[in-house]
């Protein structure tokens, strides 16, 4: 079976439907599946529920799906930096569910691992805990959170081999490995395609079992949200 597809449009063929739930990896604009998101926009699929830590910026990343009003609901931990988001949310066009970042990550991990729910201290005593089961363990109160599974997960990795084994680079890893496990279908986009045997099997981050297909993206933009540097001191 050949997991390598020619391009993002081909990779998405036959997996999209209106009203579906899609996970998208990335933290801010770091490690986002930028080509797959563009292909998603061009597909015209609508009423999507998107699970992603953030929602891109106005004109890049998931933000471009807001411009075309393809997103019905976002499940995120932080959505600043996006005026279109603010406008659509305030006008009631866009639904939003906030999850604490660690709870969001663990919900994906649990979903991918076949765990329907777990207890966490995070959010106890806050609005996040409202309506959720509370349970005490050794005198400490926890709330029940549920695992998440998506119809489709879109992830970004640095390299893939033919098997779909993935290796990420630096902090571009973030949510990608857990989301790769939690998609009924998972599509990866990578910067480099390597031959079988090029990876040291001990160094693989995501085993290919989680990856249904992958594409090799070209001309990555990788915009930087906040450029901070130091000066060379002579």
């Amino acid at each position: 079976m050949n997991k390598l597809k020619n391009n993002a449009t081909e990779a998405l063929e036959g997996v999209l439907f209106d009203g579906m739930t899609i996970m998208a990896g990335g933290f801010g604009l770091c490690g986002i599946p930028e080509h797959l998101v563009i292909a998603l926009r061009d597909s015209g699929v609508k009423d999507i529920t998107v699970i992603s830590n953030n929602c891109g910026i106005d004109d890049f990343g998931l933000g471009i799906l807001l411009q075309t009003r393809q997103i019905k609901k976002m499940l995120s931990s932080y959505v600043g930096e996006n005026k279109t988001f603010e406008k659509q949310y305030m006008s009631g066009e866009l639904e939003l569910e906030f999850n604490p970042q660690g709870t969001l990550a663990e919900r994906c991990r649990a979903g991918g691992a076949g765990i329907p729910g777990f207890y966490t201290k995070t959010g106890v005593g806050t609005v996040i805990a409202e309506g959720k089961e509370h349970k005490e363990f050794d005198g400490v109160t926890y709330i029940l959170e549920t695992g998440l599974v998506a119809d489709l997960s879109l992830v970004k990795a640095w390299k893939s081999d033919d098997e779909g084994n993935l290796v990420y680079r630096k902090t571009a890893r973030n949510f990608n490995p857990v989301m790769a496990t939690a998609g009924k279908v998972t599509i990866a986009e990578v910067e480099e395609h390597v031959a079988l045997g090029d990876f040291d099997p001990d160094q693989i981050h995501t085993p290919g079992i989680y990856v249904d297909s992958f594409i090799v993206g070209t001309d990555y933009k990788k915009p930087i949200e906040i450029m901070t540097t130091r000066e060379y001191v002579a």
Partner: peptide, 23 residues
């Protein structure tokens, strides 16, 4: 661009640095 902190600022790594998933 693949190396940022939680405030989305560009940063650098150290000899003892390690990377891992959000989970």
């Amino acid at each position: 661009p693949d190396l940022i902190n939680a405030g989305k600022q560009t940063i650098s790594e150290l000899p003892q640095s390690s990377y891992f998933s959000s989970a």
